[in-house]
Design a protein around this nucleic acid. Structure first.
Lengths: 254, 254
DNA sequence: AACTGTCAAGAGCGGTGCTCTCGATTGCGA
DNA sequence: TCGCAATCGAGAGCACCGCTCTTGACAGTT
């Protein structure tokens, strides 16, 4: 038993080394540039040996995608927990989480593009990815639910009329579906999430080039403006303390 | 002279045939799947012959990108001109243009992903693309400028304070920079454009899967909600007359 | 008719994902 | 303790890719 476990351990270790190497390669060559041969070469293995661990390039990609989703979600959860622990209000929590997601994206540009950019052609994401994919959404939904509970969410000027536009699963993401006058908050939350990802992608993909002067301040302003869609007030005063993003995406991914 | 012109004509014709074939192949294989050899094979040419017309795969990609930008911009311009001719208000014009852009994106998913999705690795867009890229933005900026001129744009509740966050070129996109209380409209317009692209990408990339019940109505709601960021009222009542989008992107790109 | 520039074709280079076979090693049950 | 079976890495090979270079055919000009 023990020795068998030893073999499995060795196998797990090598599997981890493969994904790590692949992730490093992803950061320099992009998703479509991910080469099994190059991974094998860097590890000093024959390319065929990798197929003992990942039966295809797609399976390796899936592993990387799940890892990326989890990393983003874990970042969001950690930052929100810290903010909540520091007694921050819902607006500050919201901004902090959004900043943290952007920070992660700037630090892991190709990984972010892997999950939120153009899908890799011929690749079909298995259902294993949906769980990790919702972690970030869950954090954001929880903040909005807290805002409702605290009574600090401004009801919308123009509510989205029936019928509801999001599925039951989404409405249930932050517990029970909100009651009047907050019935359309799930729809509005979806817009906020879409815009968060969209704003990051826009920056990452280079479309902000020559259009924006201060990327950090602009991002904060975007979050402030879009949060208003859900009636959430985001304070802009606190000094920028991006979690880990040091460089801007001025140049974008290669 | 005449004969020489005949030769140039033949060359132009073949060039067009190449881009058409490449575009068709783009729709089935994606940007990174674009293969010069496959294009040549489909045309009954030797792969090497294509290099007489496009000195590299990147040059062919650039041509496709410029074509896509122009097609989107031309769609936006045409729809807006038609709406304006029909006496539509700024809100209706805005919605119509956004719908048209989404419609084009749904009909040309991989082309849209080519310009607004993850950049192709190793590809550096030449400056030739910036002109066509701003056509759509110009249309949207013009609508907002009209809204200001007509006095129907609601001033923001929380203006973006100085300093301005967008470059002078962007501020000048719709003529003169707007005056108080509309100084921050360019920033807000940027958010609207980002969100338009982001919402389409989110749908195209499959992230709306299992979260939204009615893609068309949801998109309209998104546009209505985000337009409010700039103080623009978008009417939702008029029947959905998507320009050319017939199928939804429920499945997304392959 | 001779020349000159343009053209498509073909071979070849180094790269890719993936499959298959073949030894070598390793861990477990008898 | 020994033999067997499972596991492993290596290597060759297939069909594909972008791209380069050379070659021979052709057309338009002089």
């Amino acid at each position: 038993m023990e020795v068998l476990r030893a073999r499995d351990l060795a196998r797990a270790e090598l599997t981890r080394q493969i994904t790590d190497t692949a992730r490093r390669q992803l950061a320099t060559a992009g998703a479509q540039g991910l080469s099994l041969r190059a991974v094998a070469r860097e590890m000093g293995l024959a390319s065929s040996a990798l197929y003992r661990y990942f039966s295809s390039r797609d399976h390796l990609l899936t592993a990387l995608i799940i890892d990326a989703y989890n990393a983003i979600g874990e970042t969001a959860e950690r930052v929100d927990t810290a903010e909540r622990g520091a007694g921050a209000g819902v607006g500050s929590r919201w901004l902090a989480v959004c900043r943290a997601v952007r920070g992660w994206a700037l630090d892991h540009q190709h990984e972010f593009a892997l999950v939120y950019g153009s899908p890799v052609v011929g690749y079909r994401a298995p259902s294993d990815t949906v769980g990790p994919a919702t972690r970030t959404a869950r954090v954001l939904a929880d903040i909005l639910a807290t805002a409702i509970a605290e009574g600090v969410l401004r009801p919308p000027d123009r509510p989205i009329p029936e019928p509801r536009l999001v599925t039951r699963e989404v409405r249930a993401l932050a517990g029970e579906a909100p009651e009047a006058p907050y019935e359309d908050v799930p729809e509005r939350a979806m817009v906020l999430l879409t815009n968060l990802v969209g704003a990051i992608n826009f920056e990452l993909f280079g479309h902000l080039h020559n259009t924006v002067t201060d990327y950090d301040r602009y991002f904060d302003a975007v979050i402030m403006m879009t949060a208003a869609i859900a009636g959430l007030d985001v304070p802009l005063e606190p000094a920028m303390t991006q979690e880990s993003a040091t460089r801007s995406a001025r140049s974008g991914l290669q």
